[in-house]
Amino acid sequence: MLGKAIGALIILGASSYAGWHVAGGYARRPAHLRDLQTALAVLQTEVEYGATPLPIALRSAAGATGPAVAPIFGGAAARLGAGSRGITPGDALREAIAEEAAASALRPEDLDVLRALAGTLGASGREDQVRHLALARERLTGLEAQAQEQRARYEKLARYVGVLSGAALVLILI
């Protein structure tokens, strides 16, 4: 009996945790999308008003944004820094996304916006750069609205599904 009770608790705990985890993803994604927009806004200011070279501009973007997104920009800056040979800003940003983005709640479609930006980052004049950065921010704003909506709809649902599916499994197994 005790074994059964312990088994039931483990199942319930695991499924609840899974539900909470999925719900957490829904909850964190809008915040991370906002952080991404903040970083791009800083980058745009650095490019537009300071004409700051990218390694420095990317570092300031990393410094101004949240800890989940900062490593993407910091990583790109580090890859572009001294000793890097043959690496363009686009390569640096793409590599940093591949390595650092997994820790965030960003989805592939969010990262696609950054990857599209990587293709032109640093490769053209100021006006053109500002236009690309503004476009990326606009797309992220759209994605953020979508993420908010999904959060309202699925965050609680995911938690309930987690707990209830655990409870159902326990009932079936008993």
Partner: peptide, 10 residues
């Protein structure tokens, strides 16, 4: 791009 230190706009 590398000659412009990755920052053509600068």
């Amino acid at each position: 791009q590398m000659m412009a230190q990755g920052s053509v706009y600068a």
